[in-house]
């Protein structure tokens, strides 16, 4: 799995950090910081959920890789 975040669409909600704090963090202004762009398999479920609930639709996943 590879994660791509679109900081322009990120609205700083931090839902991703609540769900997967090992993969996502936030700058002080709220914009997402990607800590791990190809996370370990045990994190995939949480990352998929984060991508689904992200209020900015800012998290895109490439599952093949």
């Amino acid at each position: 799995m590879r994660i791509i975040v679109d900081v322009e669409k990120c609205c700083g909600a931090g839902q991703c950090v609540l769900l997967a704090p090992k993969v996502f963090d936030q700058r002080d202004d709220g914009i997402v910081v990607l800590l791990d762009e190809s996370p370990a398999p045990e994190l995939h479920k949480a990352v998929r959920e984060a991508a689904c609930v992200c209020p900015g639709a800012a998290i895109r996943l490439e599952e093949q890789a």
């Binding site: 700083g12 931090g14 950090v17 609540l18 936030q26 002080d28 202004d29 709220g30």
Partner: peptide, 9 residues
């Protein structure tokens, strides 16, 4: 206050 807000959640 994005981060602090999340902490108080």
């Amino acid at each position: 206050m994005v981060k602090q807000t999340r902490m108080h959640r």
